[in-house]
C-alpha cells in the first residue's frame, strides 16, 4: 500500500548516469507529489531521459536514493509506475485496442494473462480510455496507420488503463502541432486532476513546459535545479565532461 502524504517520486542526493567515469547528473533533489505535473527541461543530450529512466527503475543510481511510489517496503508495487517513452513504446502491427489493454496487464491475474482473457472491468476500462482520447473509431486499426498525434493518444490511453501512481512521460509533446499538443496537455491534466496521478514530463521546450506544469526543473551542467534559478557556478548547460573533451 502507498503511504499517503509521501511524495510519489523522491530523489535524494542521487547521482545518475555517467559519461566516461564522471556522473552525468549529481546531487539530484526532486519530489513529485500526487496530482501534480512536474516538468523537466534542458538541452538535448544533457540527461533528461537518463533521469526519467532512473525514475522508472531501468537504470540504477550511482549514489543516493530514488524512492518511487513510496510503499512501506520502499519498493514500487506492480503497475505503480507508468512510462511513455519518447517513441511511445507501442507494439507495432497491433491494434489500438491491443495496445491500450496492455495497460491492464499489471493488475491482471495469472490465469487472465496466461489465457489472454481480460475480464469485463479491463475491457470496460480499455473502451473508456479509448473513448476519452477520442479514438473510438480506430479501436481495431493497427497503430502503424495512425498519425503521430493519434499514436501519442494511444500511449496516454494505455497509461489511463494502467492508472499508475506515477506517470513518466518523455517528450510526449515533441513534434506536435500546437492544437494537438494542447489536446495532449489537457489529457495529462485530466490524469493528474481526476486520477490523482503524479506526472513527470520531460520536454525540451522550456516555454511550453511552463504553461502546463505545476513546477519545472531544468538540467544545467551536472545539476538539476528549479527553473529560473541560476546554478551557483553559472556553468554551461552542457555536461562538464563534454567541455573537457572539447
Amino acid at each position: 500500500m502507498v503511504v499517503e502524504g509521501l511524495p510519489r517520486l523522491r530523489f535524494s542526493k542521487a547521482s545518475i548516469g555517467f559519461v566516461g567515469d564522471t556522473p552525468l547528473i549529481v546531487d539530484v533533489e526532486m519530489t513529485v507529489n500526487a496530482g501534480e505535473i512536474v516538468g523537466l527541461t534542458g538541452r538535448s543530450g544533457i540527461g533528461k531521459t537518463t533521469l526519467l529512466r532512473t525514475a522508472a527503475g531501468l537504470i540504477s543510481t550511482l549514489s543516493g536514493t530514488v524512492e518511487c511510489c513510496c510503499t512501506e517496503s520502499t519498493r514500487a508495487e506492480r503497475g505503480a509506475i507508468g512510462l511513455i517513452p519518447q517513441r511511445l513504446g507501442l507494439v507495432q502491427h497491433q491494434s489500438v485496442g491491443y495496445n491500450v489493454i496492455l495497460g491492464a496487464l499489471a493488475k491482471a491475474s495469472l490465469l487472465q494473462t496466461a489465457f489472454s482473457l481480460p475480464n469485463r472491468v479491463m475491457r470496460d476500462a480499455t473502451r473508456d480510455a479509448i473513448e476519452a482520447v477520442g479514438l473510438s473509431d480506430k479501436t481495431l486499426e493497427s497503430v502503424n496507420r495512425l498519425s503521430g498525434g493519434q499514436q501519442r493518444r494511444v500511449a496516454i490511453a494505455r497509461a489511463m488503463v494502467q492508472n499508475p501512481q506515477l506517470l513518466l512521460a518523455d517528450e510526449c509533446l515533441g513534434e506536435l502541432d500546437a492544437e494537438t499538443a494542447r489536446e495532449i496537455i489537457d489529457l495529462l491534466r485530466s490524469l493528474a486532476r481526476d486520477h490523482g496521478m503524479a506526472i513527470l514530463v520531460v520536454d525540451h521546450n522550456p516555454v511550453r513546459v511552463r504553461t502546463f506544469c505545476d513546477r519545472v526543473f531544468q538540467l544545467r551542467g551536472h545539476s538539476l535545479i528549479p527553473f529560473d534559478e541560476e546554478p551557483a557556478d553559472r556553468g554551461s548547460t552542457l555536461p562538464l565532461v563534454k567541455e573537457d573533451s572539447a
Binding site: E77, L83, G89, V91, Q94, L102, G103, L105, R158, Q162
Partner: peptide
C-alpha cells in the same frame, strides 16, 4: 527496446514481457 521498457516499468515478469510485447512486435 521501448515497448519492453514500458513493460518492465509496469513491473511485469519476463514471460509477460515476451508474450505480450516482444512476440507480437
Amino acid at each position: 527496446k521501448e515497448p519492453l521498457e514500458v513493460a518492465r516499468t509496469m513491473g511485469l515478469p519476463r514471460w509477460q514481457v515476451a508474450r505480450f510485447f516482444a512476440i507480437p512486435e
